[in-house]
Design a protein around this nucleic acid. Structure first.
Lengths: 242, 242
DNA sequence: TAGTGGTCTAGACCACTTT
DNA sequence: AAGTGGTCTAGACCACTAA
């Protein structure tokens, strides 16, 4: 029953109406929203269409539906924060890259084991320096499980982000990326690259990308200048989709 | 057309089948999956049911559908990492809390302004120490916009996480949580609380919770012992729901 | 037993893309 | 013009929850 004048689907309008009621406080945490049948009646639409709207709200984390009971209002899940490496902070548009070196380290089973690359003894390393303007902000070192017949292209090495690079070089499909954020002190060499003092603390961001069977395919370690780099996250972006 | 023997919905089985094909590499990045009509034919189900399965895959970030064209396989979005404060690392189950103090700071418009609490001059502060076992791992200081007639309960102060506390104390509904992760050096006082050396670097996690109209409702600053605390994130969890 | 959400059908018309 | 996905209908039966 979409109005001809506007292009907004009915189910979307329904979802937005309820969202407004939640954000204004008219519907509070724990409240039941009207049943699907009631909403269908109110809006003069079929139940399947109502369900589309309700699905949107559930996706956004604004409601939770329980079979046999109804749909309850829940507070948005502000405990879940999302780091978007494509946009916020890390692989930002403003950032420039300088390739420091690419190496194929052969027959080093020790290193491979340390990285979790089981059954492999050859490791590819890629080292880059990240700049904001003319200031170096971070050193990034990537370790890739060696994959025969999947050469790395120059352009990828310089510009591709880590998940992309792994996807391009590996035959296994990458399905998970784990990140650990910690603090370390700059080594002499690192300090020189970042044009910083020796003893300066630094933010360390380590990523490990896994295949379906939990085999590590690649490891990335970023060492970031504490005053020039800040990692940002925001709450579950799905909430914003409505 | 659900089999009587199993309880798994058809649309779910369809989605899982395609997921397997993607993760095994049979369907690659950029490939078109069969059209909705074709899938309906293959599985002997109606188009609306096919669409339910396709919606699951799109939610998981495994495909993207384009009107008039079809559904394309996309690599899982490993650039989006999720920090789950409820489970991973921060407000962990294993952590214990010790309340250090609660204060109502009156008539301090300077502090309120600094926190972004426009039009407010009273600020509530809550300070806690977080323990893992008997070791202090982090100092957490929260600043809340003062809200008349919404007292803070003892149990909330000691156990509630930050978004919860804000939700309980504010009349405005919290809708966004922004986080910034940085590095600092421990002050003398902080070092003493964390039973650490004075000059030790520390991980600083700052959160700001906003209402619908982008008014800050609360600020939380966590100062974490570098060797006892590691912040963890993992790729978009929706991918795992299938 | 009555009410709820979960699954599914067999159609329809539309907007968009490609040929 | 033909094919695609997007929206929507008016039913149906089921599983679960509550009284």
């Amino acid at each position: 029953m979409r109005s001809r004048a506007n292009l907004i689907p009915v189910y979307y309008r329904l979802a937005d109406d309820i969202k407004q009621q939640i954000e204004s406080g008219a519907l509070k945490d724990g409240d039941l929203i009207p049943t699907e049948a009631q909403l269908g009646e109110q809006y003069g639409i079929s139940r399947m269409t109502v369900r589309q709207g309700i699905a949107l709200l559930a996706e956004a984390g604004l409601i939770e539906t329980v079979k046999g009971k109804g749909s309850f209002v829940t507070r948005p899940r502000l405990n879940q924060l999302v780091i978007d490496l494509k946009n916020s902070g890390v692989n930002n548009q403003e950032l420039r890259y300088k390739l420091l070196g690419v190496n194929l380290i052969r027959n080093n089973r020790e290193l491979a084991n340390e990285l979790g690359f089981t059954g492999e003894s050859n490791v590819i390393t890629v080292k880059r320096l990240m700049f904001k303007g003319n200031q170096p902000v971070a050193i990034e070192e990537k370790f890739l499980r060696y994959q025969k017949g999947k050469p790395l292209l120059e352009t990828q090495l310089e510009y591709a982000d880590f998940p992309d690079l792994v996807a391009k070089h590996q035959k296994s499909v990458p399905v998970r990326n784990d990140m650990a954020i910690s603090v370390a002190t700059l080594s002499h060499e690192q300090a020189k690259l970042l044009e910083a003092d020796d003893i300066l603390p630094a933010l360390v961001i380590k990523q490990v990308i896994y295949s379906k069977d939990d085999k590590p395919l690649g490891v990335s370690v970023m060492v970031c200048h504490k005053d020039r780099f800040e990692l940002k996250a925001t709450s579950y972006p799905i909430s914003g989709r409505l």
